[in-house]
Amino acid sequence: MKAKFLLNLTALIALTVFASGCNGQKNNTTATETTTEAEPVGPKFNPDSAYAYTAAQCEFGPRTMNSDAHEKCGEWIIGKFKQYGCEVQTQKADLKGYDGTILKSTNIIASTNPSAQRRIMLCAHWDSRPWADNDPDSANHKKPVMAANDGASGVAVMIEIARLLQADSTLNIGVDFVCFDAEDWGVPTWETNVQDSGDSWALGSAYFSKNLPAGFNPEFGILLDMVGGEGANFYKEGLSNRYAPDIVDRVWAASKAAGYGSYFPDQEGGMVTDDHYPLNENAKIKTIDIIPYYPGYGGSSFGPTWHTINDTMEHIDRNTLQAVGQTVIQVLYTL
């Protein structure tokens, strides 16, 4: 989710709002990092393709709940996964937002190699934040977010991986791509009469976690949240380390083997309530979160465009998309 919550890493007691913003400074990593230990496997992830899928979602406009853009983009996502050989099912539900709004939600589940017993889940949310309530200009706080990074980038990485898997017959496991809806309707900062306890976020994944499709039983899951931003580094998220430390270790080792270890510091960042939380807590599916962390900035740790009107294609970095995409490919092809 996006106005997520940071849990105290030393005590794991109090939830405090993980307010966001970020330093906006690019790091010095490049997409061509190599190490003597790198042993990349699997097909080459195409960042230009992922970038194009991100842009295609943004062309619909902000995909806010109950909007025409939201419905049309959902149809596009379904069509792309079908185009790349996936069996697709949808999970529709009327969910209640923090303000009582009924949200017409659609979770999208796309599966490769559906007969495979051994399965891995990749997931991301596809809806847009209705309010740019972290924008430095308060005049923008009730404007919708384009959500190029905060939503579209994760879905784009998954679609590119689906395309690669269709063209490759060597992977003998199945992959379930899950696009969660209604993730970003959490209490806005300007809503002073409503206390945000954290349960107003990740509504689609919470519903999914309590209503799993028949036979849905992945070995583990990887959540992709804001995986295309400029200057992004992906620290080990705290709840991921708490619920699935072995999967965290597997993914971070894969980043090094694929040649992108500098994007994945071997350090822990904040604990964040995101779509992986209900998957772990309710469905007992070990799921980790690949999410950026910008330490040392006063107002936010999610990046300079988080919940602002500047979350647009101008701030999507192909290098970041490639680092994450190739790392996930590395994980899949070393199981």
Rank of each mutant, 00 (worst) to 15 (best):
M1C: 10
L6T: 14
L9A: 14
F18N: 15
G24H: 05
G24P: 10
K26V: 09
A31G: 15
A31C: 10
T34M: 07
V41T: 14
V41C: 10
G42D: 12
K44D: 15
P47V: 05
D48N: 12
S49P: 00
S49N: 13
A50L: 04
Y51S: 07
Y51Q: 12
Q57E: 08
R63S: 04
M65P: 06
M65G: 14
S67V: 01
D68V: 14
K72D: 06
K72W: 04
C73I: 02
G74P: 03
F81L: 06
Q83D: 08
Q89H: 02
A93K: 08
D94V: 03
K104D: 15
S105G: 06
A110R: 02
N113R: 14
A124W: 06
W126M: 06
R129D: 00
P130N: 04
A132Q: 06
N134H: 14
D135C: 01
N140F: 00
K142S: 03
M146Q: 15
M146K: 11
N149H: 03
V155H: 02
M158Y: 04
I159A: 04
L165D: 02
N172H: 09
N172A: 05
I173G: 10
V175N: 02
F177E: 03
F177A: 03
V178G: 04
F180M: 07
D184P: 06
E191S: 12
S197T: 15
D199R: 11
A202M: 11
F208E: 07
P213Y: 04
G215K: 05
L223F: 09
V227I: 14
E230N: 13
E230Q: 14
G231K: 06
F234G: 07
F234Y: 15
Y235M: 07
E237I: 00
S240F: 04
N241P: 00
R242M: 13
R242F: 15
P245K: 11
D249W: 00
W252H: 06
A253H: 13
A253E: 14
A254L: 04
G261T: 11
S262C: 02
Y263C: 05
D266Y: 00
Q267I: 05
M271Y: 14
D274I: 05
Y277V: 13
L279D: 13
E281P: 00
N282G: 08
N282Y: 07
K286C: 09
K286Q: 14
T287V: 11
P292V: 09
S300M: 06
W306R: 10
T308L: 02
I309H: 01
N310D: 15
D311L: 07
M313H: 11
H315S: 08
R318N: 12
T320P: 10
V324W: 06
G325F: 07
I329D: 10
V331E: 04
V331R: 07
Y333V: 12
